[in-house]
Design a protein around this nucleic acid. Sequence first.
DNA 1: AGACTTAATGTGC
DNA 2: TGCACATTAAGTC
Length: 253
Amino acid sequence: MDKFVIKKAKTKSKRTLVDDTGSPTEDLTRKKCRGEEADALPEQTCTWKRIREENLSCDYTSLFKKAEADEIFQQLEKDIVYFTGDLSKVQVYGKWHNVPRKQVTFGDEGLTYTFSGITLSPKPWIPVLDLIRERVQLVTGHSFNFVLINRYKDGNDHIGDHRDDEKELVPQSPIASVSFGASRDFVFRHRDSRGKNSVRTIEPVKLELEHGSLLMMNFPTNVYWYHSLPVRRKVLAARVNLTFRKIKPPSQR
DNA sequence: AGACTTAATGTGC
DNA sequence: TGCACATTAAGTC
C-alpha cells in the first residue's frame, strides 16, 4: 500500500475537478506514468487527480503517453472481437434491447459476470490486454482477473446510469477503467438524488476520460453513486474502454 | 415480499 | 438541437 501513495496535488488544474478539501487539483505531468522507473522510484510513479465527494473516491491519471496509447488503441481495434447476438442484448425494465455499444469480456478461465439478464464468460487473455493489465497493476498495486471491454463507435453510443455492484465482484475491490480513442464525458450521480425517490440534492460529478487514461473507482463509490457515459452527438470518433475487475472464483459463490 | 433495473422514450430548457 | 432528467411496468434476485 505505502508503495502506491497518491501524490498530493500542488498546482492548479485547467479543469474544474476538486479534491476533498475543495481545492483544485493538479493537472498531470505525465512524466513518471509509464512504469519503467516505477520499480526504482516507487514513490514517484504517477501524478493523480483525486476525486472526492461524499462516499465517492476516484483517482485519475495518465497511464500511457500519447504515442503508446495510439499504438495500443490500434492493436485493440485489430485484435478485439466483440460479442454479437444474445450476448449483446440486455434486459431492462422487462424489455430486451441491443446494447447501444459493443461489449466483450476477457479473463481467467471459469469466471463469469452477470448483469441485466446476461451472463458473460470471458475469452482467454491476449497480449495487448496483458500489457494493459500489467501496467495497471504496476501503477496501482492492484491485480485483476477479468476485464469488460466496451466500444463506443461514436458519440451516439453510450451506457446508462448503473452501479458496478454485482455479487460476483470481490467485496470492496476497486475497478480500473482504462480509456483509448475519443475523449468522452463521464458522469456520477448520487443514488439519493435520482428519480422519484430523490430525497436530497447532490450535484453530479462530471469528468472527461481521455485517451490513455486510467480512472480508479474505489470503494464505496459504487455503493452510493451511479455512473453513465452519456450521448455526446458531436463526438464522431470511437472510444474503447476497459474496466478491469476482481471477480470471485466460482468456488467462493 | 420488496427492491432493483448497464434500456428507450418524452418533456422541458 | 443537444442535453439533463424522470418515467417506465416485467422480470430477477
